[in-house]
Design a protein around this nucleic acid. Structure first.
Lengths: 329, 329
DNA sequence: GACTTCGGTCGAATCGATTCGATCGAACCG
DNA sequence: CGGTTCGATCGAATCGATTCGACCGAAGTC
């Protein structure tokens, strides 16, 4: 038995002859190699890395950034020979987070119940890494320069001459309700990404007003856009916190007979490059989503190996598209 | 130990007092419940269902239908308390298919290497179910009425008066190369979906010509569209085998100054309803993708329980959108 | 020729939970 | 009050592989 184990695990020294005998014997008994369950028990490792996403797959992957994150994670995980467990973050208990074998957890984005996921993983002694989400103590994170990047976009609008600029933010907390961007809403905000991007924008336009979207979707952006553009002194530019929201704002503008960028400048955030999306070439900050995914998975793997790792920071890059221009008049 | 096991698994009869003692003891030792690895070894079940997708996540999820499939699978799996292992189908060995614990496999769509995946699973004695892909012996499948559905679309075009109709098909085999729709290509075809849809179309327009796309993407459809519309006697209608391809064809038409549906009618297939996609309301067949996903997962679960299951068939529904009209003149 | 050394093979403990059968105690019946 | 029954608890075997140390034989050394 021990020799067979060596043959299959490729570890120790086995003579070619014995190796052959083991393999033919295995073939006769049609033994398909070691049972992963037993192996993982003995080794104390399952070779599985869990990725926690939104509650429903279809919501999670409506956002191309999330797909790109997962793509990066998937690549890094495959390269390391591990497997990827997709865990939709059901609020109530009974997640597969509690019952499935896993060596590490990567939190993607920020579903309403992430904190519970972190607790669960902690109790089970599974290392956690976060990607593009809310920070937790002792959870190394892959983070973006959201604040500076948004300041760059705002600066771009200011330099073009815009003064009346409104924003459409990502959800600020777990509740996911559309709302005006009130001081209270901002005070209660918990989602890092949204808060940082807002701070960056307000570093340039301190009293910038706007709308809080219920999700990062085109339809959401469209509704928000309608609301902003119906205002009496409508803005000459809108800073949306995601490309999908920006696409929605542009649709809303077109519906109202406003031309972009003639009557309205629009900037987004993310730099998604998916051919199904956005007819326009958006002015935006491009974030290296797949790289961030890889980095997050690499952090997770390092933590499995017992290494102490620090958070990693990525920078996004300004892309001047065709949706911004000086204000009219 | 045995009593503790009963407490955590909720199985046998345990008095409230003992139960309490066990739980407080667990809390003191901060024991977080049974180790999934050991549990799965003993029970012979890991509670994990693998889903095999395209080689790269980003390719797999470029297609909204694949996301909807996965969404349905994810729902059914969560409901049953299982977990979802996402396995990108790397061609070479060393997939996590071989090394990770799983109780069943769902094949989604048809990556170039599915057959190897089937073999691997077979050798390991893991039941396999297929969804929207190529059929295999002893693999129960969730299938669509591709042929009749496409015949419906073709019939619609014929009834409108179209006679010169071209098609853009999905890839016909594992090689994924753009190509003219030659007799040889059709003879060598292995992908059920593409073949059936083509057969349905040709049941109405027997000598229908066209292009084989390299993937189901808007950009692909656009290139194919350009090619078809540049022909000397250009078609008055194009039947694309997916909505994404149809969207691309429409873009190509617009580039050439053709109006849809005035100068060109376009039909798609799938009925994807994602707000980022396709500016037009497409004439298409709507397939119940999420339901199919659920059904596939349910089949997998039934097979885990040792039941003998049969393939399931779903029907798609005709949706008359704004992209078809009688031919001009 | 005896001793060391080293590559290769084998025994046996171990990972942590589940589960069947055995045991034990209390309540109930006649 | 003895016997039976039932519910709760406990012992011990088991799932299948890994791995450390023991062992064995052959080659090399003095």
């Amino acid at each position: 038995m021990s020799t067979a184990s060596l043959v299959f695990s490729g570890g120790g020294p086995v003579s070619e002859a014995t190796r052959g005998k083991v393999l033919t014997a295995a073939a006769e008994l049609d033994y398909a190699g070691p049972d992963p369950r037993a192996r993982s028990l003995r080794r104390g490792r399952s070779g599985v890395i869990a990725v926690v996403i939104e509650e429903r797959v279809i919501d999670a992957f409506r956002d191309p950034v999330a797909i790109a994150f997962l793509d990066g994670i998937g690549q890094e995980i495959s390269d390391s020979g591990a497997a990827l467990l997709l865990v939709p973050d059901a609020g109530g208990g009974h997640t597969s987070l509690e019952s499935a074998a896993m060596d590490a957890v990567v939190l993607v984005g920020c579903s309403p119940h992430v904190d519970r996921a972190v607790q669960t993983a902690r109790r089970r002694g599974v290392p956690v890494v976060s990607l593009g989400g809310t920070p937790f103590a002792d959870v190394p994170a892959v983070e973006l320069d959201d604040r500076e990047a948004t300041a760059t976009l705002a600066g771009h609008l200011r330099d073009l001459g815009h003064r009346r600029v409104a924003t459409v933010t990502l959800p600020l907390g777990p509740e996911r309700r559309r709302d005006r961007l009130t001081a209270e809403a901002v005070a209660a905000a918990t989602v890092r990404t949204a808060v940082e991007r807002l701070a960056g924008a307000r570093s340039v336009f301190p009293d910038m007003d706007g709308v809080v979207a219920a999700s990062s979707r085109v339809e959401e952006g469209r509704v928000a856009g309608r609301e902003l553009l119906a205002a009496p002194d409508r803005p000459t530019a809108v800073l949306a916190q995601s490309d999908l929201l920006a696409a929605g704002v542009i649709l809303a503008a077109e519906e109202l007979g406003l031309s972009v960028p003639g009557d309205l400048s629009v900037v987004g955030f993310d730099g998604i490059r998916i051919d199904t999306v956005v007819p326009h070439d958006l002015t935006t900050m491009v974030q290296p989503a797949a790289d961030q995914g890889r980095a997050a998975a690499a952090l997770a793997i390092a933590r499995i190996d017992g290494q102490d790792v620090a958070s990693e920071h990525f920078r996004s890059e300004f892309h001047r598209g065709g949706t911004t221009a000086p204000p009219r008049g």
